[in-house]
């Protein structure tokens, strides 16, 4: 009885918006209160863990822009993460710790990398696209490994996190709130972007490129723009990641990391705004649990990934949304 009444309420537009607003407020409040509660319960580790989820959710959201909404299966997206991490780590070696500088560097280098690789990669067919994005990610990986003066394949430890207004971004609580804020901002931005003229055209290009060309749109330019935005966002995410671990490593951009990012998007539901967030949370939690259960956890994770790929069509979030009405 209660379920059908709830369903009826959700179907009514105005009630639905009101409920959504209430849910958002509840989410915002609990998200803000979470660290305080965690510290009080002496479970500070979870603040770090949830921050990790927030950061990877952000990376997944950025990937979703081109993957879910653009239909471009980029299998090298984690390379932006590793690039971003080094954009924070390398300057600190020279004592340059300003957070805004790190972010600016990340945006500049990330967008440039996306532009250069996009120009090559976006001209290939879907299947070659997967392979070439993978190959370029490897290229960056080897480049980073060869930077012996910055740690090479052992990675680079950071003496200090990015500093903003005299505060260290690497402080657990600061990073938590900053990541939360950035995630919220990016999600809102993405919503606006997808409904904007650019976003609508981009979705059209993803749906039927031939049609859009025949209408007069230079489709490559649109895909490239989305790819650059996505890459830039993901690189900034890398700055946050470096602050989480105070460590930058080429392995942040390994193809396994890219595969995991893609999995988060698919698991949660590509092509939805909330999907990647749910997917990142689900994946990281499952990983955490399996790690605790068995030393052979990679195999169990692998089996899970296979199962998800074989049986899932649309991801958790889509399932939840569909079954609400």
């Amino acid at each position: 009885m209660a379920v059908s009444e709830l369903a009826q309420i959700l179907n009514d537009d105005r009630s639905a918006s009101a409920i959504k607003l209430v849910l958002c407020v509840i989410a915002a409040v609990s998200a803000s209160a979470f660290p305080i509660v965690a510290h009080a319960m002496d479970a500070s580790y979870y603040v770090v863990f949830v921050t990790r989820i927030l950061i990877y959710a952000l990376a997944a959201v950025s990937l979703n822009l081109v993957l879910g909404f653009g239909g471009l299966a980029s299998f090298g997206h984690a390379m932006f993460l590793s690039l971003g991490a080094y954009c924070a780590a390398v300057p600190t070696v020279y004592g340059v710790n300003g957070a805004w500088l790190h972010v600016l560097l990340a945006l500049t280098l990330g967008c440039s990398l996306a532009l250069l690789t996009g120009l090559v990669v976006l001209r290939t067919r879907e299947t070659a696209f997967i392979m070439t994005t993978l190959a370029f990610a490897q290229m960056l990986y080897f480049l980073l490994v060869s930077l012996k003066q910055f740690g090479g394949d052992e990675g680079l430890n950071m003496q200090s996190g990015s500093e903003i207004a005299g505060v260290q971004l690497s402080d657990n609580n600061v990073l938590y709130f900053v990541s939360l804020a950035v995630l919220a901002a990016v999600v809102l931005f993405q919503r606006r972007l997808l409904h904007s003229p650019f976003g609508t055209i981009f979705r059209g290009v993803a749906a039927n490129e031939q049609r859009m060309k025949a209408l007069g749109y230079p489709t490559l330019l649109y895909r490239l723009t989305a790819y650059v935005i996505s890459g830039g966002l993901c690189t900034v995410c890398g700055v946050l990641l470096a602050n989480l671990t105070l460590f930058a490593s080429p392995s942040y951009g390994s193809w396994k990391a890219s595969g995991e990012l893609m999995l988060m998007v698919v698991l949660g539901g590509a092509g939805t705004i909330g999907g990647p967030i749910v997917g990142a949370a689900a994946f990281l939690m499952i990983e955490e649990v399996t790690k605790g259960v068995s030393p052979h956890w990679p195999a169990y994770l692998g089996i899970l990934i296979i199962a998800i790929s074989v049986f899932s069509r649309n991801g958790i979030w889509t399932f939840v949304r569909r079954n609400r009405s």
């Binding site: 993957l67 299966a73 299998f75 879907e126 299947t127 997967i130 396994k256 595969g259 893609m262 999995l263 698919v266 590509a270 052979h296 990679p298 195999a299 994770l301 692998g302 089996i303 899970l304 990934i305 296979i306 998800i308 790929s309 074989v310």
Partner: peptide, 24 residues
């Protein structure tokens, strides 16, 4: 079962296989 799926799902599934085989 994956022949009819899109390449993304195929890539992910075979990626899962890599994890299993490596651990094996």
């Amino acid at each position: 079962r994956l022949y009819r799926s899109d390449h993304l799902h195929q890539v992910l599934a075979t990626f899962g296989f890599i994890l299993v085989f490596d651990e094996l």
